[in-house]
């Protein structure tokens, strides 16, 4: 099996899908030259300017036009250059794409993917480091996915492109080149809505996604040296959440740690906690714990401040120890 980086995987998957289906178009700012992260490199040369469209610099426009194109038979994959700049498109995503099927009673729908590079630890400052999943994971009609490994990125991107409803596809920028993994040559799919246990364990459960999955796996390894086994669950799909897998793991270990980079209040962790509190209260042997970014606007630029913002393997390990000892 080929070993690829995240960004290579996304590029190759887009390429394969565009080859398979002539209705797929890619559109966004600078996508023609390959995109600022090179995720669309080579697509224009292979598929032409008509299918790989450099749009004007206008995010509401990118999503709004993609919606229209999806209504008329195309399958657009729109790129928002940085998650931080998705907010002008919020109305088009939330009020238009996500509500199209419901509001028309099934008359119209939007098979549309919006790729969104997000996240910090890249010295991007507060406007090139944001996590935006919580805004969108609240929106019925939308699907939000956040793969952490190349295998899942390929399988989920294919599933998203082939889905009949709008999907927000979150790509953690730090993982683009830092994370490598095996990717099969076949057209494998990873089903939307399924979490996966990436490391089994019996002493506590960690629910996480994106870059924080990698930090949690590292922390779990260190914890194992102390004779404690953390079960690390990759949520992968953030909307809809895979309740079954979450509850099964909570039941198995009785102790729950939730890790995300996004700030704490109203973050994904709140929803995961609520699911467990409502439906798995009696499984718990300890209060639920969260390791998250602090409640400040976003990741600051100065290195010590960025470090202070980001959850790290050490911070996760510390929380694991506390929870295990409870």
């Amino acid at each position: 099996m080929a070993v690829k980086t995240m960004v290579q995987t996304i590029r190759d998957t887009l390429y394969g899908e565009m080859e398979r289906d002539p209705n797929i178009i890619v559109m966004g700012e600078d996508v023609g030259m390959g995109g600022v992260f090179r995720a669309t490199d080579g697509l224009r040369a292979a598929f032409g300017e008509e299918r790989v469209i450099d749009t004007p610099l206008a995010e509401s426009g990118i999503v709004g036009v993609a919606i229209g194109a999806s209504l008329n038979g195309l399958r657009p994959v729109a790129e928002i250059q940085f998650a931080d700049f998705i907010l002008p498109a919020f109305n088009q995503i939330v009020n238009e794409a996500a509500k199209m099927r419901y509001r028309s009673g099934g008359d119209f729908w939007c098979p549309l993917v919006i790729r969104v590079p997000y996240g910090g630890n890249i010295k991007g400052g507060i406007y090139h480091s944001q996590s935006v999943e919580a805004y969108f994971a609240h929106v019925p009609g939308l699907t939000v996915v956040a793969p952490a490994f190349p295998y899942d990125a390929a399988g989920l991107l294919r599933a998203a492109i082939r889905a009949e409803d709008p999907v927000l596809f979150l790509e953690h920028k730090f993982t683009y080149n830092a994370i490598r993994g095996e990717v099969p040559a076949d057209d494998h799919l990873v089903p939307i809505g399924q979490a996966e246990v990436k490391r089994p364990g019996k002493n506590l459960s960690v629910f996480t996604y994106g870059l924080m999955l990698h930090y949690s796996l590292r922390a779990a390894e260190d914890l194992a040296k102390e004779g404690l086994e953390a079960e690390v669950v990759d949520l992968r799909t953030l909307l809809p959440l895979d309740k079954e897998t979450i509850l099964a793991s909570a039941r198995k270990t009785g102790k729950v740690l939730i890790v995300h980079e996004d700030s704490k209040t109203g973050g994904l962790g709140a929803e995961v906690s609520a699911i467990i509190a409502e439906e798995g209260f009696e499984y718990l042997d300890a209060p639920i714990k969260r390791v998250t970014g602090p409640d400040v606007p976003a990741v600051p630029y100065a290195p010590p401040l960025e470090e202070a913002f980001m959850p790290s393997p050490e911070k996760v390990l510390h929380a694991m120890r506390e929870l295990a000892a409870y």
Binding site: R51, I67, G68, L74, P76, Q92
Partner: peptide, 16 residues
């Protein structure tokens, strides 16, 4: 919001 959808619908027509 619909004006952008019109541009998108027309983009698809033109592309085909």
């Amino acid at each position: 919001t619909q004006l952008l959808h019109a541009a998108g619908v027309a983009l698809a027509s033109k592309l085909r």
